[in-house]
């Protein structure tokens, strides 16, 4: 859907008229568009075009479980799933996420695997200051869905993009191993 009516600050979608690429028309260089967040459609109103998904989630949509730390894709505290793949939301352009399915820790579900991950984190004290925890829960849930029987090396490698500055990795590992044990 093209909107040539907008002089500037607009999103030119593809020629397929994809409704999800809803092109907005804002004032100046601000744009409005829709994102699929945690199973619902959220309207992003008057955001700058150059904003990251992390910035839009926190500053426009109030999704505060997605944490803002390095803003360089290095620390993993802003991890979300985008179309089912683990990404750092600070490296995603929010307006380009229109049409993608974005899942934060809240959207992983009240039951099922994510519940087991949360329960194991609590049971093993895998939470210290808690800042990195939402990102870790997303990453661990993603890992156990893809590789339920991952060994220790694989777990450590899969979590290398999530940094815990309290260095509570031992408890996190223990939590993951306990989930694997209960599944056997």
């Amino acid at each position: 859907m093209n909107n040539d009516g907008c002089a500037r600050g607009d999103i030119a979608g593809g020629s397929d008229g994809d409704a999800a690429a809803l092109a907005g028309c804002g004032t100046g260089r601000r744009v409005s568009y829709q994102l699929y967040i945690d199973g619902g459609i959220r309207l992003v109103a008057d955001a700058w075009l150059a904003e990251s998904l992390l910035g839009v989630l926190r500053d426009h949509l109030g999704v505060m479980s997605v944490k803002d730390a390095c803003e360089q894709g290095r620390c993993g505290s802003c991890s979300v799933l985008m179309d089912g793949r683990l990404v750092a939301s600070c490296t995603v352009l929010a307006a380009d996420a229109a049409g993608a399915v974005v899942t934060t820790v809240a959207g992983l579900g009240a039951g099922g695997p994510a519940r087991a991950v949360r329960a194991a984190f609590l049971a093993h004290g895998a939470v210290q200051c808690g800042f990195c925890t939402p990102g870790f829960v997303v990453a661990v849930t993603d890992l156990l869905a893809r590789r339920p029987d991952a060994d220790e090396d694989e777990i450590r490698e899969a979590l290398a993009g999530n940094i815990c500055r309290c260095t509570g990795y031992g408890r996190i590992m223990a939590a993951i191993r306990s989930i694997q044990d209960t599944r056997r």
């Binding site: 600050g9 607009d10 999103i11 030119a12 260089r29 700058w48 075009l49 500053d59 352009l93 307006a95």
Partner: peptide
Amino acid sequence: DQSTDPAPPRTARLHR
């Protein structure tokens, strides 16, 4: 926060 930023970002158009 963008509402208080004195210089708005220059990027004005996203093509997909």
